[in-house]
Simulated scan of single mutants.
Amino acid sequence: MKFLYLTAGIALVLSTIFDYKKTIKALKVAWKKFSKILPGYIKILIIISIVLLISEDTIVYYLGGNSQWLGLLSGLILGSVTMMPGFISYPLAGILVEKGVSYMVVAAFVTTLMMVGVATYPVEKEYYGHKATIIRNVASFIIAAIIAIAMGLFYGEVL
């Protein structure tokens, strides 16, 4: 990470040396875009912080029920409304499988976690528009359900 900061700093200095006015203009444009996006990203960071407070036992309780189909629905919904980075969600998926949650339910949870963005809706809406965001999220939800059921069929958990 330090390498990236150093490289960016050197590039900024070189840009300033070669054309000071263009560099200042570019920095102003960058700041304007950054300040426009910042409120949405702060909301997302707050939501992520709250989600990370949920313990794995709570998640297992809601996903590892007796009914496969209720667990599938819970996994799809819970994954859709939460947001976690991959480096947290994949180890969590391993923990869920170790605790007895079926592969189908874990696939539903992790797939919707990565593909469906209820938490990112405000930011996504700004860039893609309301209609495109809704279409993308609904399509992702349906695809995640299909993937989860296919995993259940593959591992013999369904039928």
Rank of each mutant, 00 (worst) to 15 (best):
A11N: 12
L12T: 14
L12I: 11
L12D: 06
V13I: 15
V13G: 06
L14R: 08
L14H: 09
S15R: 13
S15L: 14
T16N: 01
T16W: 07
I17D: 00
F18T: 05
D19M: 03
K21M: 07
K21D: 13
K22E: 14
K22L: 12
T23D: 08
T23Q: 09
T23F: 07
T23R: 06
K25Q: 13
K25T: 10
L27Y: 03
L27K: 05
L27W: 05
A30L: 12
A30Q: 06
W31Y: 09
K32D: 07
K33T: 11
K33V: 11
F34C: 07
K36M: 08
K36L: 09
K36W: 08
K36V: 09
K36P: 01
I37L: 14
L38P: 04
L38F: 08
P39Y: 03
Y41V: 13
Y41Q: 10
Y41T: 12
I42R: 05
K43N: 11
L45G: 15
L45M: 15
L45E: 06
I47N: 01
S49R: 07
S49F: 13
S49T: 12
S49N: 13
I50Q: 04
I50L: 15
V51S: 07
S55G: 14
E56H: 08
T58G: 13
V60H: 00
Y61R: 08
Y62S: 03
L63F: 01
G65E: 05
N66G: 04
S67G: 01
Q68C: 06
Q68L: 15
Q68H: 14
Q68R: 09
L70T: 04
L70Y: 03
L72W: 01
L72K: 03
L73H: 03
L73S: 10
S74F: 05
G75S: 06
G75Q: 05
L76C: 04
I77D: 00
G79D: 00
G79F: 01
G79I: 01
G79Y: 00
G79V: 01
S80F: 01
V81M: 10
T82F: 08
M83T: 09
M83K: 09
M84D: 05
P85L: 15
G86Q: 08
